[in-house]
């Protein structure tokens, strides 16, 4: 069901630069199907959370106005190489996905 998610976390000084690429259609619910003229139902990520070694560092709420196959970049101070980054999302249909990566 859930497509893979890519996470890359690299150290720059004492700050971990974390980049996440998710796979999601991000339908706003406002687009119409070109053939039928029917509205395509909304299907987008609503919540994203990230933890570093189990401690929450970022929690986000999204609308459907985040681009398809979302990209997210954030930075965490005080991280070090070998730390574990976990990113999870949940969409408006209740689907979820989680992936983790090790800070390099």
């Amino acid at each position: 069901m859930a497509e893979p998610m890519k996470i890359r976390a690299t150290m720059a000084g004492d700050v971990a630069d974390i980049k996440v690429l998710m796979n999601h259609p991000m339908e706003t619910g406002q687009r119409k199907d070109a053939k039928t003229g029917q509205l395509i139902p909304a299907h987008h990520i609503t919540e994203v959370s990230a933890t570093l070694n189990g401690k929450t560092v970022m929690e986000a709420e999204w609308s459907g106005a985040i681009s398809k196959n979302p990209y997210l970049g954030f930075k965490v101070k005080g991280a070090k190489a070998g730390d574990k980054v976990t990113v999870s999302w949940k969409d408006n249909k209740g689907e979820t996905n989680t992936a983790d990566a090790v800070v390099a």
């Binding site: 570093l52 560092v57 106005a65 954030f74």
Partner: peptide, 13 residues
């Protein structure tokens, strides 16, 4: 929180 820098990068519609 917990050390996250005040920075966000993403792509929007």
């Amino acid at each position: 929180e917990n050390g996250a820098e005040p920075y966000i990068s993403t792509r929007i519609k």
